[in-house]
Structures are given as C-alpha cells and as structure tokens.
Design a protein around this nucleic acid. Structure first.
Length: 469
RNA sequence: GGCUGGGUGGCAGAGUGGUUAUGCAGCGGCCUGCAAAGCCGUCUACCUCGGUUCGACUCCGGGCCCAGCCUCCA
C-alpha cells in the first residue's frame, strides 16, 4: 500500500483516495517569464513519476492531474516592459519552451493545464465569496486583502505561528493592510498595466488566489494531493489553504507533497540567486533521460546537488542498464508477470513514499540477472527479465528508448565526432578484416582512432558492437 | 532570533536496533589476441559527547556543523 509523507502532518501516512475511481492531484506549475531551470525540471519529473505511479495503482483513467500556468504577475509585467513587448507574447514564448522541455524530459502532459488569465471568472468569484463571508476586505488603494485573523488554523502547513511571524523583522509593513500578514487577493492596476474588470475595479489577481480558484474549479473543493516545490510551502500553500477553506467551507487537500531543492555548490538554485542552469542549456550536453535519471536517483524530498560529475555518474549508470538490454529482442508487447520477488520489491520501494533510489537499486539487480542469464545462454529467461526491466522502469519514465539509440546516439545534442553510422561500420569491418589475419597492430589502430573520437568498440560473442562514450 | 530538515564508505545515495543497499571509482580474478562490456571476489562507512540496551550507524538527550523557510522563487 502506498504511503506518502504528508507535509501537513509531517508524517508518512497510508494514502487513501477520496474516490479511488478519480484520484485528484494538483501541482503548482511555472510562472512563465523565463526558461525553466533544473529546479523546475525536478518538479516536472518528480510529479510525473507520482502521476505514473498513481495511474499504475488506480488505473490510467482513474487519475486526474492538473498543473497550472501562472501567466500574469508582477515579474511577467516587468519582463515584458523591459523587452518592450506585450506580456502575452512573452508568456506564449515561455509556455512553448516549457512544453518542449517537459516533453524532452519524458514528462507526460497533465489532464488539464489551466492558466490564470483564462480563469478570471473563477478567481473573481472566489474573491467575491471571501469578501461576502468577511474573510477579505477592499482597501482604500483599490487592492483586496485576505484577512488572516479570521482563519484560525493559519500556519498549520508551514509550522508557523502568527506571533512568531509578527515578531520577524522581515514582514514588510503595508499601510493599506489591516495586518502586515494579510496578503493580496486582487491588485489594482497601475496605469499601463494589464488588467481585468472586477467588482473592485480594474486589476489583476494576486498569486495565491489563482491556485485556489483553479484547483477547486478543476478538481472540486476537496481533493487528494497538492504538490509543488518546498519553497512554495510558505506562504503560497499556506495561503491557498486559508483562501480555499474559508471560501468553500470544506477541507481543501488531504496530502501535501513538497519536493526538495536543487542546489549548486551547496546553495539553493533559484532565479533570485541567479545560479540556475536552464533545462535547455543542460540538454545541449546531456541526454534528457540522463537528466531524468539524475533527478530520480535521489529521494524527492532530499536536496539534489547539481554538477557535471553527478550527471556523468547518471549517464554511466544508465549506460549499465541499457547495456543489459542491448542484445535482447524486446519488441514483444506482452505484459510480464509482476508477482515475482523483484517486481514486488520494486513496487514496495515506490510504495514507501516514492523511494526511487531504492527502486533503481532493484533495477540494477535485475540488470545483473539479465547479464548472467545471457552469458549462461538462457535467452528465453533473459528476454523475459529484459521485458520486465523495461516494464518496471516505465514507472519511472526510464529505459523506454531503444538501447541502441541510447548507447550510440545518447550523448545529448549532436553526435560531436562527425562520424556517420556507416563510417563507423566501415572501420569495424576493416578492423575485423585485420583481426582475421591476426594483424593486431593494424586492428588496434582502427579501434584507437575510433576511441579518440569517443566511439568504443566491444567484441563479444563473435560480434563487434559499438557505442559512444 | 524563531521554525524545519539533515550530517552514512573516495564520490553519489538508500536503509536498518544484531545479517550484502545500489551506482560510479579502486583492487584481485575469470573472459578476451589485447581491450571493452559482462561475471565473481574484495577494500574504504555511518559528525561528536553522553544515556537506554545483551547489543546502536539505527532509539533518547547535549554539542558542533550544513541547508532551507520566516521576502519573489519549483
């Protein structure tokens, strides 16, 4: 049975869906004013894995995954002004880029991808309800604020207490607010800013309210899982709970999942620190599957240190797995029996709060078994286990490419050596000709030349195969 | 300052009150014309000080160190 570490209770809990026929998950997506970085890649990949696993348990049609797009906010407006273009052009560009990045990483699209600008009706509606219920107030400056004092359990998710927050020196005082901790639901538009009409005048939504409005609109007032990066826990998710529960009168979310940060040199990767690597930058150097493996090789709640060494390690590990599959005919579509111990251990690992490192360890043991079966000549069993390996790995979105494709062209970006497959094959033939007449120096020269260009030759069972390192 | 989370072998990274994580790297062997890949074997661990226990890396307490949140951020 699946257990999830719930940020709300800070404990591992058995996962019990509200309705097993429709398991509902909402994840906070991107604010689209720049390219996605590796931190965003982690959110995309981690929750894609969660999504895959939920569908495995409850059925493909029984899981609804919603991931929003924030396509209007201060930063978007600022960036568009800097670039001297309409904000819609800017967001369109980065939404497309995000979709490209996600697809490259093998991230399956969610069922719904609501955008703030397409959800104004629901957003305004929720603010109106909050005002009517006395949980929000319109200030003199045209903004509408959420009244924190009316929501008694505020701080539950982030483990914060109101008096402690107030004691902190970093809460900025805004004259228009009744309480410095009140947060904005509706921002009055300044001249020249994009705006929408509302009962409180022209303006745009605050950041937090859009997620409350979109999630409850798409998934209902009460749903199963809400996820996002750890940095959203406070104040974003805390505020979402306050807004949603005050507006609907229902419990908002049962399980909160937060993934850990990506770090660079032991420091959080973030836009504000400027120490980020964009996904597309990294993909010039590494195969997207390597990036995916790198992300899943750590537990989702642990910090993930980014470096070339770690990606090189991920590539080596993935090469080992693909090598085990290399010589097997894996075209068969038949589903493999999963009642064996290996598959059970794999699923037990994922059941334990999505322990992907443990699950990967099982895959390596399976790979070794396949290699042993192959060298023992047990081809039927080797193929069976090979199919099982690929079947299990599909839950992680790994090993779905052909081994040949990964091993020969998996370097990421272009094959940098300028050699075509035919040229490589020609040299292999020339080398094997030399080997037949025992001209070893000549044969080694061909191999060394290819090695210098990053092409590794391997002679096994009377055949020569090649791969790029 | 308040509140979280964490400190595991050369590196990365799981886990457990007494028994092999796993990957990469190293070493020895098998295989190979030689390699590579693969297989077998093998060496490096559990921040520190106390406590509980027959026994703790694993539980409890103190300390040190690191990261994060308290402000936009996945």
């Amino acid at each position: 049975m699946l257990h999830i570490h719930n940020s709300l209770s800070k404990k591992k809990e058995a996962f019990k869906p509200i309705d097993p026929a429709n398991v509902r998950m909402y994840v906070c997506g991107m604010t689209v004013y720049d390219y996605c970085h590796i931190g965003h890649a982690r959110v995309l990949v981690v929750f894609d894995m969660v999504y895959r696993y939920l569908r495995h348990i409850y059925g493909d049609k029984q899981v609804t995954y919603v991931r929003n797009i924030t396509d209007i906010d201060d930063k978007i407006i600022k960036r568009a002004q800097e670039k001297g273009e309409p904000y819609t052009g800017l967001t369109r560009c980065f939404i497309d880029a995000m979709h490209e990045d996600a697809q490259a990483l093998g991230v399956q699209p969610p069922e719904e991808e609501p955008r703030a600008t397409s959800s104004m009706e629901q957003i305004i509606d929720m603010i109106r309800i909050l005002v009517e219920k006395g949980h929000a107030y319109a200030a003199d400056n045209g903004d509408v604020y959420y009244d924190i004092s009316r929501f008694s359990s505020y701080g539950q998710l982030s483990g914060k207490r109101l008096d402690e927050l107030r004691a902190g020196e970093r809460v900025t005082v805004d004259e228009a607010k009744d309480d410095p901790l009140d947060f904005v639901l509706w921002k009055a538009a300044k001249p020249g800013e994009p705006h929408w009409a509302s009962p409180w005048g022209k303006g745009r939504p605050g950041w937090h309210i859009e997620c409350s409005a979109m999630s409850t609109h798409c998934l209902g007032n009460h749903f199963d899982i809400h996820g996002g990066g750890l940095d959203l826990q406070f104040p974003h998710h805390e505020n979402e709970i306050a807004q949603s529960e005050a507006a609907t009168g229902c419990k908002f979310v049962n399980y909160w999942i937060h993934n850990g940060f990506v770090r660079v040199d032991n420091e959080k990767m973030s836009k504000s620190l400027g120490n980020f690597f964009t996904i597309r930058e990294v993909l010039k150097q590494y195969n997207p599957e390597v990036v995916r493996y790198f992300i899943l090789a750590s537990h989702y709640r642990s910090p993930l240190n980014y470096s070339d060494q770690h990606l090189d390690g991920a590539k080596a590990a993935l090469t080992t797995l693909y090598t085990a599959l290399r010589d097997l005919p894996l075209s068969e579509e038949k589903k493999q029996d999963e009642s064996g111990q290996t598959a059970q251990r794999f699923y037990a690992a994922l059941d334990d709060d999505f322990n992907t490192p443990e699950a990967l360890a099982v895959l390596f043991e399976l790979a070794r078994e396949i290699n042993c079966l192959q060298s023992a000549g047990s081809w039927v069993d080797a193929v069976k286990q090979g199919l099982l390996l690929r079947q299990l790995a599909s839950l992680l979105g790994l090993l779905q490419n052909s081994p040949q494709q990964f091993l020969q062209h998996g370097t990421g970006g272009e094959d940098g050596d300028g050699l075509t497959d035919e040229q490589i094959e020609q040299r292999i033939a020339a080398r094997n000709h030399a080997r037949e007449t025992k001209q070893w120096a000549e044969a080694d020269r061909f191999r060394d030349e290819l090695k210098a260009k990053g092409v590794i030759l391997e002679d096994s069972s009377g055949k020569t195969t090649w791969r790029r390192e």
